[in-house]
Amino acid sequence: MTAKRIVVVSSGLSTPSSTRQLADRLAADAVSILAGRGVEAEVQTFELRDLAHDITNNLLLGFAPPKLEAALDAVAAADGLIAVTPIFTTSYAGLFKSFIDVVDTQALTDLPVLIGATGGTPRHSLAIDYAIRPLFTYLHAQPVTTGVYAATSDWGGTGAAGEGDGVRSLPDRIYRGAKDFADLVERTDRSSLVRDPFALEGPSGHLIGGLAGE
């Protein structure tokens, strides 16, 4: 059986980053769950802070430099995407949205997506459902039911992950989200997805004035 390809995208700006920490834990649980079912998974992780200049250049010029192109190709070929962003001003980070803007519009079709977010206060947890989930739904991806939000206070909590009905601790939420994601990844087959070889690589709005005034 061919290994499932999981791509992790983290848009944390600091090093070390709680956003990257959450992304790594989501990926680790998803891989562990799939392994328990006899499904091998390969994980490839991209830190968007390392691609920030390339993303900007792509938005301005319409061409992806090699490192960014590798990330975009990985997303297009993935069987599942774990996307984690910090929450700034009640919504996703600008760097996160800019990366999504340069992803081919067909690349996310039917792609299982596990959404993660981090922030200073639990009050911003709803951003997953009112800001991030609609973004991936619009792009015809398959965002899993459980999104995982981690506030600063969550990182000091304890508790073992499990499948109980009372999902409260961060490890519990990570496990639940990873399980929902693994369920989708396991049964998803994107090998037959045909991309248009003549499609523009990246957004075309700037070519027709769609980004004028932005």
Rank of each mutant, 00 (worst) to 15 (best):
L81Q: 05
R20W: 01
A131C: 11
G162K: 09
F99K: 10
M1C: 10
V31F: 07
D79V: 01
T89W: 10
A178W: 03
E40K: 14
G38Y: 13
D79K: 08
G159A: 06
S91M: 15
S204M: 13
D165Q: 14
G12E: 02
R168M: 06
A212N: 15
R133A: 07
A150V: 11
F46E: 05
P16F: 06
G80V: 02
L114N: 04
L114W: 00
L108I: 04
R20L: 08
M1L: 14
R173Q: 04
L51D: 04
A64W: 12
V167C: 09
G116S: 05
A70R: 15
A41Y: 06
A178D: 02
L193N: 01
V31C: 12
S10I: 02
A151Y: 08
A150W: 12
L68C: 11
A131Y: 03
N57T: 13
I115A: 15
A77M: 07
Q44A: 12
K97L: 10
I208N: 14
A93G: 02
F63P: 01
L135S: 01
G157L: 15
E214G: 07
A3W: 07
L193G: 01
A161P: 05
L111A: 08
D154V: 01
L200C: 03
V194K: 11
L51M: 11
K4H: 03
Y130N: 11
L135Q: 02
A141F: 02
V9R: 08
T85A: 07
P66Y: 08
L26W: 02
I87T: 14
D54L: 06
D104T: 01
A93F: 02
I55T: 04
V103A: 10
V113A: 12
G210A: 13
A107E: 07
L135K: 05
E163M: 11
Y175N: 13
V31G: 08
M1H: 13
T56I: 12
T145F: 09
